[in-house]
Simulated assay, not measured.
Amino acid sequence: MSLAPAAQRAPLVEPAAELDRGQLARYSRHLTLPGVGQLGQRRILNAKVLVIGAGGLGSPIANYLIAAGVGTLAVLDDDTVESSNLQRQSMHRQQDVGARKVDSVTRLASELNDSVEVIAIPERLSTQNALQLFTDYDLVIDGSDNFATRYLSNDAAEITGTPLVWGTLFQFSGQVSVFDPRTGPMLRDLFPEIPDADSVPSCAEGGVFGALCGVVGSLMAVEALKLITGVGETLSGKLWLYDALNSTVRTLGFERDPQREPVTELGDYQPVLCAVGPAIEQIDAQELEQLRAGGETLVIDVREGWERELAAIPGSTHIPLGRVLDEGWGAIDLAGVRHLVLACKSGVRSQQAAVALSTGAPAVQLLNLSGGTVGWYAQIRGEELTY
């Protein structure tokens, strides 16, 4: 069995100065690797990497890039730590709840490898900052959790010519690819259009297996280091798919679409409501309370029972989504009801329930609570509901 490395590509980063004695000791396991060696480690030390997201994927990515000695690591995230993050976002600690997520990266570097310069950017990626950020760094790693940011990242990478390592999570599965505009196809060659915002539930709605973040995020860090050093063959032109439930891995190949127009400017990345199925009338929390004041209004909470133990809209009736989908209108007592409002955590599952009920609906007004229970608590009680 040969231990020779795969044919090398052009490294992304020029090497830093010669390693000192301390660096030789710290990075010795890299120095003995065929294709990496001292030259590859010097490239890592000189690399400037931007990570989008300091959550489930950002945690293992930051951990391994800091350990590897990446010269400059910028992390972009405008969120704060919630207790529900701690199940999978291993970079954060209990005492960090309420603090900025990007500050955990600074602490991690100070504890693990204080030679790494960390730039904490408490912002979201936007059309205003994307092009400048992508121009400022050798490589970008997208660990975001929504379609809009992923497509904005892809388009900024294509416009600036910056390699992009990309990964996603959902429940028990993960995907990773490399979109390198210098040599290979991009996200829009694989998935041309931005999916509807609620076509796939978020991690908050659909859940995510905590340790899966480590698997996918670690592979993203591996791909980044391969790009920096030039060693091995990256996932450019390939989509890596992992199914944790069945312990299976597949890799699908894809190519540039010769018919696709190149991306030359940033577009509109605002999430849109899913257009699949009949249109469902939306209602916000204030409108719901006005409607309830007039009577004949039934609020059905389609979340799971454990979620209602954390918080629930007072006076709402619990009928889980699965039962609504199985039994339809047969699950609901409509006696004295003129207005039926469906609610969940954020409005995604209740929208699904509303679409299912819209066929053969009796003479009631069918509404979906936009923003869900979280939005109701924020608007009506002024409380931030996090789980």
Rank of each mutant, 00 (worst) to 15 (best):
T386Y: 12
S346A: 15
V13W: 09
A68D: 06
L152V: 02
P271W: 10
Q286E: 13
I332F: 11
G322Y: 11
I66V: 11
D136T: 02
P15N: 04
Q89R: 09
G53R: 12
Q352K: 11
A16K: 15
H30W: 10
D78M: 09
A312G: 09
G184W: 15
D114I: 06
R188K: 11
P185T: 06
R26W: 05
A378E: 06
L108N: 13
K345M: 12
A156M: 06
V208D: 08
E82I: 08
L241C: 09
L334D: 07
G315N: 07
A67E: 15
R29L: 08
L169Y: 06
G360C: 09
N46Q: 10
R88Q: 05
D268T: 06
P192D: 08
P201I: 08
V13N: 00
F172C: 03
V216T: 07
K101T: 00
V272M: 13
R29S: 02
T386C: 06
V216R: 11
G382V: 01
E261Q: 14
A197V: 01
I52C: 04
G295S: 04
V116W: 14
A7M: 15
G58K: 03
D189F: 02
D20K: 01
L57Q: 08
R29Y: 13
R381E: 12
R250G: 01
F209A: 07
Q41W: 04
G174R: 13
L187F: 07
R107Q: 06
I119R: 14
D79C: 03
R124D: 02
G347N: 03
A130Y: 05
A211D: 03
V176L: 09
L139M: 05
W166S: 15
D138R: 05
R182D: 07
L86P: 01
G253K: 14
D301N: 01
W376G: 00
A109D: 10
P34H: 10
D284K: 06
T149K: 04
T135D: 12
R21D: 14
L65K: 01
L310T: 12
L241G: 04
P195Y: 13
E287R: 08
G294N: 15
N368V: 06
A275W: 14
V215P: 00
V249W: 13
R100H: 14
G55H: 12
L108T: 06
F254A: 02
L152E: 04
T135I: 11
D189K: 12
Q351V: 08
S247F: 13
D301G: 00
G232H: 08
S153W: 13
A130W: 14
W329I: 02
S28P: 01
S110P: 04
L334I: 08
E261C: 02
T359G: 10
L325T: 03
